[in-house]
Write a protein that binds this DNA or RNA. Structure first.
Lengths: 224, 224
DNA sequence: AAAGTTATGTGACTTATGGCACACTTCTCC
DNA sequence: GGAGAAGTGTGCCATAAGTCACATAACTTT
């Protein structure tokens, strides 16, 4: 399969371009470039101009934010098929986080100017993107209310359920990072996890969590 | 001034349509209808279909959410010149809050289908809207981090500064509602306000707050 | 295999905020 | 103008979570 055809497949997977016809998809793919990253290479940093949209072909990219004390905390992992950097590209503002390759990676790159020009010619895609951004706004406000109103156990359970959907019952994440995701101190996360271990809801190992009883966990997440 | 011309002025005020030419603005205004509301009349409720975008011509509309216990809590006030209901219109999902007229009001209404049809003919407006939605996403995530990381005094100071920008130094709001805005209990809000009163940063009256020392207040908001 | 580094487990203490209770004040409306 | 509602001021206590401190366990490096 040619690279361009592969780009088209990946783009198609993303809701942003899901209802594009084959020809439009073809034209969009032709605008893409390829970029290789070695392990640990920095793609962009917080504050950089948001001049391109990226998609992962192979490898893994970590989206992280450098805390003021110099420690770096991972916010998200992007794997093959994932698109990232859309917000900065769409509004032309600067990046809000850093992106670093977690392995040798190959990305495709869609430059902001090419993308915007494409948008002007394809109003339908614009409307689709608007919908997606609106969804995101709704989702954000829900999480906002949630994180202010729900106690830590509920937030933690929800995050674990979400991770389970992506990774299966063996979630590979440190308690420190789980704390970042959930907005809590590492110690608090640990204490809650211990409590659940005693209830046989999960098992703990260094760097991973084994979910044993998803029924109970989802019940906690629902906050009955 | 004709109603249509007045609509055009209001639309122009909103960033969404700021760089539209006079003719496009004219066409958009012609799509608008007018709707009158009596005091206390309900415009829409949470869960209703988001089938129109509204703009306030005269009067005031409260955006509120009905708490589970039946008490209603105001999230925002929309006054003359304000546009609201965009998100539900743009993505076609249901309303996330209730809207009730706080006085006898006159609105203009732009129906979803008309608006979307307009968007398809004006890709530039679509791109502008995308930018605005992106800005909102950024703003939301900032507030999100803020509300989880910043202590109440900082959040409260920020909210008061924001209100001051809209209302001047005499902010007309109950402590209860301030609590809702800031995500805190009424009592906590009161205690903080009392502390500031003793420092001569502000004065309190029933239903209003008089800001005396904006310098100190903004300093607190900055969280130095 | 020893040494160093990172991740986890846990106790003790502190603190911010929430919630209840109740007094007091100011508005509103018959 | 009297009754009731709505908004405000404050004391007291409960509690969730953060912080600090340190022990232990698991991987890495040389």
């Amino acid at each position: 399969m040619s690279k361009q055809a592969e780009f088209a497949v990946i783009l198609k997977m993303n809701a942003m371009f899901a209802d594009l016809g084959a020809d439009e998809l073809q034209r969009l793919s032709n605008l893409c470039h390829t970029q290789h990253l070695s392990n640990g290479e920095v793609l962009f940093q917080k504050g950089d101009a948001g001049d391109a949209l990226f998609g992962v072909r192979r490898g893994q990219v970590r989206i992280e934010t450098g805390a003021s004390d110099g420690s770096r905390l991972t916010l998200n992992f992007m794997g093959p098929g994932d698109l990232f950097g859309e917000v900065a590209v769409l509004d032309g503002q600067s990046r809000t986080a850093d992106a670093t390759a977690g392995e040798v990676s190959e990305l495709f790159v869609l430059r902001r100017e090419d993308f915007l020009a494409f948008l002007e010619r394809e109003p339908k895609v614009g409307i689709k993107i608007i919908s997606l951004l609106c969804q995101r706004i709704r989702w954000q406000s829900e999480r906002m209310e949630e994180s202010m109103l729900q106690p830590l156990p509920v937030r933690l359970a929800r995050r674990l359920c979400a991770l389970a959907a992506d990774f299966g019952s063996e979630v590979h994440i440190s308690q420190e990072q789980l704390g970042v995701f959930v907005g809590a101190a590492r110690e608090s996360v640990n204490r809650q996890l211990q409590a659940w271990r005693k209830e046989a809801i999960l098992d703990l190992q260094r760097g991973r969590i084994l979910l044993r009883n998803m029924t109970k966990l989802t019940a906690i997440a629902r906050n009955e």
